[in-house]
């Protein structure tokens, strides 16, 4: 089955990103295809590389980065939600005249159309949080 995943909540505060990660891993192990993971609302904060969780805890962003590498996942952070919350890549930082960027490896920033496209293309769009 071709699956789309939408994550609506930030890391650690909510379990939605953890649950989505476990779901994605399980789905891939069963041979399903993950068309795209779309991060919306505070979910965009899952894509910052500047978070430093305690060493004895999971690193949610790093888990996604590793899963992305392993399965060539398409991890998309919503640009409109990201702009509000200060999550940006190098291009966006330049465009907005900011002195830094913070997007983690394996994530990319794009528009809400990517979420709609996932709804159109996938057999199921599975939402985590909200």
């Amino acid at each position: 089955m071709k699956l789309g995943i939408q994550i609506n909540e930030g890391p650690y505060q909510h379990q939605s990103s953890d649950s989505a990660y476990q779901f994605a891993k399980a789905a891939l192990a069963k041979g399903h295809e993950i068309f795209r993971v779309f991060f919306y609302h505070d979910g965009v904060n899952n894509g910052t590389r500047l978070a430093v969780p305690p060493q004895d805890d999971r690193n949610i962003t790093q888990q996604w980065t590793e899963l992305q590498k392993e399965h060539n996942l398409d991890l998309v952070v919503c640009i409109a939600a990201a702009q509000r919350r200060g999550l940006m890549d190098e291009d966006e930082a330049k465009r907005q005249g900011k002195d830094a960027n913070n997007i983690a490896e394996g994530f990319r920033i794009s528009g809400l159309g990517q979420l709609i496209e996932a709804g159109i293309e996938c057999d199921r769009l599975v939402t985590f949080g909200a």
Binding site: Y40, H41, A80, L112, G113, L115, I116, E117, I120, A130
Partner: peptide, 19 residues
């Protein structure tokens, strides 16, 4: 919370996809 506003943003973008 911001859910209502950001839902509306998806609706407006999604309208271009003729679903």
């Amino acid at each position: 919370t911001i859910y209502a506003l950001e839902s509306l943003e998806v609706v407006l973008i999604g309208a271009a996809f003729e679903q």
